[in-house]
Design a protein around this nucleic acid. Sequence first.
DNA 1: CTGAAAGCGCTAACAA
DNA 2: TTGTTAGCGCTTTCAG
Lengths: 327, 327
Amino acid sequence: MANINEVAKLAGVSVATVSRVLNGQDVVTPKTRLKVEDAIKKLNYEPSMLGRNLRNSESRVLLVLIPSISNPFYFEIIKGIEATALDYNYNILLCETDSNPERENIYFDLVRKKMADGIISMDPAVNIDTLKSLSEKHSIIQCSEYSTEGNIPYVTIDNEDAAYRAVKHLIKLGHQKIALFNSNEKYLYARQRKEGYIKALKEFNLPVKEEYMIYTDQLGFDNGSQATKKIMNLKDRPTAIFAVSDLLAIGALKELNSAGVNVPDEMALIGFDNIDFSNMTHPTLTTIAQPMYQMGTVAASMLINKINGKHVENTVLNHELLIREST
Amino acid sequence: MANINEVAKLAGVSVATVSRVLNGQDVVTPKTRLKVEDAIKKLNYEPSMLGRNLRNSESRVLLVLIPSISNPFYFEIIKGIEATALDYNYNILLCETDSNPERENIYFDLVRKKMADGIISMDPAVNIDTLKSLSEKHSIIQCSEYSTEGNIPYVTIDNEDAAYRAVKHLIKLGHQKIALFNSNEKYLYARQRKEGYIKALKEFNLPVKEEYMIYTDQLGFDNGSQATKKIMNLKDRPTAIFAVSDLLAIGALKELNSAGVNVPDEMALIGFDNIDFSNMTHPTLTTIAQPMYQMGTVAASMLINKINGKHVENTVLNHELLIREST
DNA sequence: CTGAAAGCGCTAACAA
DNA sequence: TTGTTAGCGCTTTCAG
């Protein structure tokens, strides 16, 4: 593998000139540029990022922390991040924490060790203390889930309002007994969505019943199925479910279908996220759509700005209620 | 940020000694080791991978090429790759090509530019010529989809046999008119699965009808729905569908459910891949399960071996027919 | 067992 | 406009 020296020698110029050509600096005479380009072609030379990165003390890698790669919620966000990253000549290292602090630490180490220039954290279960202390020396952006501790910039949606609108939609449809499938309240979004749920109920003078609120530790299909079983056994069974994730809702739908409960007639169902699959169920799922791709591009832009020492502002994006067959 | 020099100075040793401690070389006296470790702690020192990587001319990054991040088929494979990679102190750069040659090239450039030490390609649409020429200088492994051109090592399953067994299962159930939802025949796996389909039909003296074979360009839900519409309009409508991907099958199921066609009574359905969703549909989907996680670990091990100059052998893993409600 | 020094491949300040 | 040179942070050879 040729290096910059050999190119310089073959072209009859100095390495500095080769470097200039490589970086598109227009101080170079067209004639010398041509010589250099010729030499590059002849030697099949490819500049090594290893040398360049050391010299520039940067890795041009952005770390993206997600709890699980199999949650479709993150797909579009990741695409947005990646597109923006590539635009700015960054690459993304997608890191799945499995909500495992040990694994998380492996990834944090990458930025400590300069293998990454910054982090976009989308992991609700992230250790916020570590994140905080890391953010003192490194660039970090929170995406979707966030904490206001530590002043780490974030991009998100108004979770409370989204939940409020979802539940209000159910109420307008005539539902009075509405279950909430929520995730663990240690997560901010869970607390916020619960707030929205309660706000809607209260606004219409409906009772807030503890037994209608089911908490699941994960946001998988199975958790949705389990939760559904629980509310089906209630003496005063709800007529509608608001699930804080489409995965949960789809698990619920599966259980309802199996139990022969008609959706939406006997049980209305509304999810959250608008993942692809939510439109492939039978019936299709009413859900809250977040501008995921945009969230990704915004997060990436914020991070890149932060890396470059610019000031970045927190961003709250708009959501949308998507009414489909399940309500 | 402290560097190795400052640590050496504070510890009163040379940088060489610090490096030895860092790399766990046991030539160092316990006493000096202690001094060094103290200094490291005091300075909060983290060794920079930038320097180390340049020196070792390696990046300890593995490139993983997939066509689309939203195809769940890849999840478990990626998990397998990642787990093995981490074991060997590698990180993976997950690269989504969108079957776009331009994007593909951006990623290939990363290994040319030494940002990555090797590639695991899972993209059926990959430019095999580029891959071939790249494999002359770089370590590459093909995973799942492969080409025998260029002698690039691969890990895969026996696609023909898998398809054969799927279709045989349908035939044993009494089906005589079986549709095939295949992807584009430019892909090897598509050709192989078609072979298996035909082999089973022939073995039972069933006619092979062109009109029962639908080709889709992508493996998404929508393609499955479209394909289903086509065969529903056939005068001699099939009674069973074998789809070469669960996504296709789920799209088909959606269409069948909407059209009020009972699955499996009026139309049996079998997919391929055993993605998570396949167990969440109503009815649940019969499918072919591939050992995806293992495929990932094997691919990663092969690649790491290749990077280290060892010889690697092609591997064919076992598959399994998972009979569920849709047949 | 430890240290001095070279060098991985590149960029940029400075000089010419 | 181009060249010389130092140095990014680390590992490793060679000497001691």
